[in-house]
Write a protein that binds this DNA or RNA. Structure first.
Lengths: 125, 125
DNA sequence: TGTACATATGTTTAATTGTTCATATGTATA
DNA sequence: TATACATATGAACAATTAAACATATGTACA
């Protein structure tokens, strides 16, 4: 794929290049997932894309925490934490269990951990 | 860590639980990366968190593409594509090379591919 | 150098969204 | 059941931002 394109870019005739480009574009178009899937993908990353939510997620990297813990830890209002947890829940990024009056939240699966780790590597390099 | 917490939650004395919570919170607080790093991490995911940018990134998954290709492929204005590529560039998600009048963009490194793939797995499950 | 094509960028506007405040729901216990 | 504590949720406001439009910059070629 990439190799094929590399070949084409070596051509010098304008018309040929134009035709090649159209071919590439059409091929990419066929390979592109449905808009709906890419929309969902963007929505997923949007959830990671807020510093409050990232702080909450990171805090849960190795511990389950209740709403109050998170509020104290990050110096946020209980309301704000609860609102954000609602978003994290509906994106399946965290799971929770009730124990007495408290609700303990934790990361939902290894994907979440992996995505955060991968992003961290990119940021730190 | 998680094991230690599991132990503590078995205690029934309210005072003990309270003290244990504080300990956990303080420990998490020490483990938490600097706000600045988490802010950068959120900023990174924010870039992935737009359907237009995700479409552009995905289109470049296996091919380098010029601005015009992307505009045609995704039925977007040249201006819009260029603005988005600027954001992708400044986040180091894409690299580019000039060839004649055109500028060819491609994914910057394997991290980018990995993050997208990981997100895709989460969305598709 | 002038013209055409490809890309970049400044500005404005409409829409999205995180936080705050107020209030409601849920749970344990006296 | 009344009270206190923990969490959830509805509404309003302020800040962010993607798209559109106009225009500028950069490149090739006659």
């Amino acid at each position: 794929m990439a190799a094929e394109h590399a070949d084409r870019t070596k051509r010098t005739t304008p018309d040929d290049d134009g035709a090649a480009r159209e071919d590439i574009v059409e091929q990419v178009s066929r390979q592109q997932p449905d808009d709906e899937i890419l929309y969902d993908l963007a929505e997923l990353f949007k959830v990671f894309g807020d510093s409050t939510r990232i702080k909450i997620l990171y805090a849960m990297f190795e511990n389950e925490l209740c709403v109050n813990d998170i509020a104290k830890l990050l110096n946020l209002s209980q309301s704000s934490v609860s609102h954000q947890l609602r978003i994290l829940k509906s994106s399946k990024l965290v799971k929770f269990r009730r124990e007495g009056k408290s609700v303990y939240y934790s990361l939902d699966d290894e994907h979440v951990r992996a995505i955060i780790s991968m992003g961290m590597e990119h940021v730190e390099e």
